[in-house]
Structures are given as structure tokens and as C-alpha cells.
């Protein structure tokens, strides 16, 4: 009995994903970002700072525009296709406490460790060797985060395909990390390892840092691309199945 009630509750939560549009929208977003990140890896820049600044601007703009376009497209499609077939639901508004709790978790789990690592790399010379291995562990970290998020979504909605996608994201991250590790890492010159980075970034570091950033973006770009393809494929299969079950909009006289 409890299982049946739970299943009915989860159907409501899963309704947003019933037609595959949300996954296809997210997949298109990931695909574009992946291509953008990979292209960035091929376009050279003079200094690491200008490289980083232009990459941040490019990705920020690309992400904002694509995210907005994807959200609008999904709403439009649902309004024209899904709601006339299987009905409309209005999701619960998220309480402010939940938003604050989410932001606190992001801060604790993502931003603080990144800032801590950056500070450690600048202040502690032995930690600097970690910097060049970023192309290997960053995709694994992103794959694990996306995998956990996807798995939790699957548990919350009762949709097995999200758990499968979570496992695939983690495996993709590990595979990309292994590929980057097998390719080897750029070596940091001895003087760059010992210099005081707090006051001045040594010139000798510029080349290996750009190489590392390019490699990092190649790995993350590949991972994002693969995750986008997985999301698109899952969304497409879900959409085709939904369309087969609901070929026509609902009619009162049917």
C-alpha cells in the first residue's frame, strides 16, 4: 500500500520529464557547451590571464544564452505538445529555506574546496605539482558531482533512466580522467615551483599553465559533450515513447 502511494507521489514529481523535452533541452545545452569548451582548447592565447578572462566571458555568455533558449523552448513545447495530451501541473514553489540550504551546500562542497586548493597551490610550493594534474581529476570530480545529482533525481522521481545516466556520467568522467592521465601532464619548471606566486607569477609558468588549461578544457569539453549526447539520446527515446502512447491531443468526445 505504502509503495503504491509512494509511486503515485513520484509520478507527480516525474511529470516534468514525461515527454523527454527537459532532457533534450539539457542535452542541447551540454552539447553546445562541450563544443564551445573544445573549441576554446584549440584557440591559442598569448598569456594565461587573457586566456582565462576570454574563456570566462565566452562560456558565461554561451551558457546564459543557451540556458535561456533551452528553458523557453521546453516551456513552449510542453505548452503546445504535452499539456494538451496528458494535462498540466504546476510545480510547488521552492521555499526560501531550501534555496538557502542548497546554496550553503554548493558553497561548502564546491566553492570552498576550489578556493582552498587555489590558496594551497599559491602558498604551499609542494602542492603546486597538483596543478598540472587538474586535467585528470577535474573530469572525475565533475562526473561524480553530475552522477550524484542525476542519481538523486532518479531516486526522487522514481525514474531509473536518471540513475543509469548518473552511472554513465561517473564512468565518462573516470574514462576522460584516465585518458588525460595516460597522455601525461605538462612539467612545471623548478624555478616556478619554488617562486613566490603571491607577489608575482613567474614567466616560466605561463606555458605549462596554458597547456594545463587547454588540456583541462579538452577533458571537460569531451565529458560535457558525451553527457550531452547521453541526455539527448535519453530524451529522444522518452519523447518517441511518449508520442507513441499519446499520438493525439485529448478530445472531450474521444
Amino acid at each position: 500500500m505504502e509503495q503504491q502511494i509512494d509511486s503515485a507521489v513520484k509520478r507527480g514529481r516525474a511529470y516534468w520529464f514525461v515527454d523527454g523535452f527537459a532532457e533534450m533541452g539539457a542535452g542541447a545545452l551540454f552539447l553546445l557547451l562541450g563544443v564551445g569548451v573544445l573549441l576554446r582548447g584549440w584557440i591559442g592565447q598569448e598569456g594565461w590571464l587573457s586566456w582565462f578572462a576570454s574563456a570566462a566571458i565566452d562560456f558565461g555568455t554561451l551558457k546564459a544564452v543557451t540556458l535561456l533558449a533551452a528553458v523557453l523552448a521546453v516551456w513552449w513545447l510542453k505548452d503546445r505538445f504535452t499539456y494538451p495530451r496528458t494535462g498540466y501541473i504546476r510545480g510547488k514553489s521552492v521555499p526560501q529555506s531550501a534555496v538557502l540550504s542548497f546554496l550553503r551546500n554548493v558553497l561548502l562542497l564546491v566553492i570552498l574546496p576550489v578556493l582552498g586548493l587555489a590558496a594551497a597551490v599559491i602558498l604551499l610550493p609542494p602542492m603546486r605539482i597538483v596543478l598540472t594534474s587538474i586535467p585528470a581529476w577535474l573530469p572525475v570530480g565533475i562526473g561524480a558531482l553530475w552522477g550524484v545529482f542525476s542519481w538523486l533525481t532518479g531516486t526522487w522521481t522514481g525514474l531509473t533512466r536518471f540513475r543509469v545516466m548518473g552511472a554513465l556520467a561517473l564512468m565518462t568522467g573516470i574514462a576522460v580522467g584516465a585518458w588525460q592521465m595516460a597522455a601525461g601532464f605538462p612539467a612545471l619548471p623548478a624555478e616556478a615551483l619554488q617562486a613566490d606566486w603571491w607577489t608575482a607569477m613567474p614567466d616560466a609558468l605561463s606555458r605549462p599553465l596554458i597547456d594545463t588549461l587547454n588540456r583541462m578544457f579538452a577533458g571537460v569539453g569531451t565529458m560535457t559533450l558525451v553527457c550531452g549526447i547521453i541526455l539527448l539520446a535519453s530524451g529522444l527515446v522518452t519523447f518517441l515513447s511518449y508520442r507513441k502512447e499519446n499520438p493525439e491531443p485529448y478530445r472531450e468526445d474521444a
Partner: peptide, 20 residues
């Protein structure tokens, strides 16, 4: 069943409840 279907959402229309 109807209450369980309505519990995770703010609101739902007749067609959604009919189909589910």
C-alpha cells in the same frame, strides 16, 4: 490516489488527474 497525485504539486488540471 487523487490526493497522492496532488500532494507533490502545487496544482493539477482535470486532464492530468484523468490520465494518471
Amino acid at each position: 490516489l487523487l490526493v497522492a497525485l496532488l500532494s507533490p504539486v502545487e496544482s493539477a488540471d482535470f486532464l492530468y488527474l484523468l490520465k494518471e
